[in-house]
Amino acid sequence: MNEFKLKVKRIHEDAILPNYAHYNDAGLDLYSIEEKVINPTESALIRTGIKIELPFQTEAQIRPRSGLALKNGITVLNTPGTIDEGYRGEIGIILINHGKEVFKVEKGMKIAQMVVKPVWKVDVEEVEELSEALRGDKGFGSTGV
């Protein structure tokens, strides 16, 4: 039995509790409570009808579903979206249609996945210099294209 509990409150009668499709999955599936059309290049906020209370010192990351991305060009706009431990509002998922066809979100459709992860709090310290590293300041594209 897991020592971490995700408390979930349904705020809509059609809400489906987050669940793992398979025992070893990292992400809990999240479901739409509404039907909505998303045109190509457009985004929409999709309601889930749930509120959550995360375990102490965790966050929830909202990530796309690979099947929706591959088959329809549908992804989570601000991926990974972060739900902070103290947030108690309804979970909404911002989907964007990168596909060429109109996409219809159906009521009860799996629209995203939620991964609960630990959060480390750090002390911020201003310094004059940083330690040397092999990569150094080489940024975007530094390992090849």
Rank of each mutant, 00 (worst) to 15 (best):
G67V: 10
I111H: 01
E101M: 12
T58R: 04
T75G: 03
L68F: 00
E59N: 11
G81T: 12
G86R: 13
E106F: 00
L54F: 05
G73V: 01
F103A: 00
N97D: 04
I111A: 04
V76E: 00
V76P: 01
I74R: 00
P80N: 13
Y87P: 09
E85C: 11
I111N: 03
G108R: 08
V105Y: 01
D84N: 13
Y87I: 06
F56E: 15
L70E: 11
E53Q: 14
K107S: 07
L54C: 04
A69D: 10
G81V: 08
I93Q: 01
T79E: 08
K107T: 14
A112E: 08
L95E: 06
M109I: 05
A112N: 06
P64V: 05
Q57C: 02
R65N: 04
K110V: 10
M109P: 04
I74F: 01
F103T: 02
R63G: 06
K104H: 10
I74T: 05
E59G: 04
N97K: 09
Y87M: 11
R63Q: 12
I83Q: 07
R63I: 05
M114T: 12
R88A: 04
R65P: 08
N72K: 11
I96F: 00
V102P: 05
A112D: 02
T75Y: 01
I83L: 05
E101W: 04
T82A: 09
I62Q: 04
K71H: 12
F103M: 03
R63A: 07
V105K: 00
K107G: 08
E85T: 10
K110R: 15
I111R: 00
T79N: 12
R65S: 10
I83T: 07
V105H: 03
L54D: 05
P80C: 12
P64T: 14
R65G: 11
V76W: 02
G89M: 03
I93T: 03
I111L: 06
P80W: 07
I111K: 02
L77N: 02
E106R: 09
G67N: 15
G73F: 00
G67E: 14
E106S: 06
I62R: 02
M109W: 04
E53F: 00
T82I: 15
G86L: 10
E59R: 14
M109L: 04
E53H: 10
E59M: 11
M114C: 11
R63T: 05
E59Y: 06
F56P: 11
I94A: 10
V102N: 11
G108A: 08
N97V: 06
K104E: 13
M114H: 07
T82L: 06
L95A: 08
M114Q: 14
N78G: 05
I111S: 02
E101C: 05
I74M: 02
E101F: 09
I96S: 00
N78H: 11
L77S: 08
N97E: 04
E106D: 12
N78Y: 05
E85L: 03
G67C: 10
G73C: 03
V102R: 06
E59F: 07
P80A: 12
G81A: 15
A60W: 07
Q57Y: 06
R88H: 10
K110Y: 07
I93S: 02
I93D: 01
R65H: 05
A69V: 03
V105L: 01
A112W: 03
F56L: 13
I96E: 01
Q57E: 15
L95R: 07
P80E: 12
I93A: 01
Y87L: 09
M114A: 12
I93M: 02
V115E: 13
F103V: 00
